[in-house]
Amino acid sequence: MNSAVRVSLNTTPQHAQRLVDLQAAFAAVCNALAPLVQQTRCWNRVALHHMAYKQLRQQFPELGSQMVCNAIYSVSRACRVVYQHPQSPFNLSRLGDKPLPRLQFLPQSPVYFDRHTLSIKDGQVSMYTLDGRMRFQINLAPGDEDRFRNEKLREIVLAGKGGSFQLSFLFAQATGDEADDGDTAHPRGAAAELPEYVVVLPDDTFTPPPSMPRTANASLSP
Rank of each mutant, 00 (worst) to 15 (best):
M1E: 13
V7L: 09
S8Q: 12
S8Y: 11
L9F: 05
T11E: 03
P13H: 02
P13G: 04
Q14S: 12
Q14N: 07
Q17F: 11
R18H: 11
A24H: 07
A24D: 09
A25P: 01
A25N: 02
A25K: 00
N31L: 06
P35Y: 01
P35L: 05
V37Y: 01
Q39D: 15
T40N: 05
T40R: 05
R41I: 07
W43D: 00
W43A: 04
W43E: 02
N44C: 10
V46H: 13
A47S: 10
L48T: 03
H49V: 09
H49D: 12
M51P: 00
M51C: 11
Q58S: 14
Q58I: 12
F60Y: 06
P61Y: 08
L63H: 04
S65K: 14
M67G: 04
M67L: 15
M67A: 09
V68A: 03
C69W: 08
C69I: 13
I72D: 01
I72H: 03
S74C: 14
S76L: 04
S76I: 08
A78E: 00
C79Y: 00
R80D: 10
R80I: 07
V82G: 00
Y83L: 04
H85Y: 04
Q87F: 14
S88W: 00
S88L: 03
S88H: 03
F90T: 04
N91W: 10
L92C: 10
S93Y: 12
D97C: 12
P99A: 09
L100R: 05
P101W: 05
P101G: 05
Q104W: 10
Q104R: 15
L106A: 08
Q108P: 04
S109R: 02
P110G: 07
V111Y: 03
F113C: 00
F113W: 00
D114T: 06
R115Q: 13
R115K: 11
R115G: 09
H116F: 13
L118R: 03
D122M: 09
G123A: 08
T129W: 08
T129A: 09
L130R: 03
D131W: 11
G132H: 07
G132C: 07
R133C: 14
M134K: 13
I138W: 01
N139E: 15
A141L: 15
A141F: 10
P142Y: 06
E145Y: 07
D146L: 10
R147Q: 07
E151F: 11
K152A: 11
L153C: 10
E155G: 06
E155N: 14
E155D: 15
I156N: 03
A159L: 14
A159V: 10
A159D: 12
F165V: 06
L167E: 04
Q173K: 13
A174T: 13
T175D: 15
D177T: 12
A179C: 11
D180G: 14
D180P: 07
G182K: 01
T184S: 12
H186W: 12
H186R: 07
H186D: 02
H186E: 06
P187W: 03
G189E: 06
A190R: 02
E193N: 14
E193V: 13
E193Y: 12
L194F: 07
P195K: 02
E196Y: 07
V200Y: 01
P202D: 01
P202M: 09
P202C: 05
D203F: 05
D203P: 00
T207N: 14
T207Y: 05
T207I: 15
P208K: 03
S211C: 12
R214K: 13
T215P: 01
A218Q: 12
S219T: 14
S221E: 12
P222V: 13
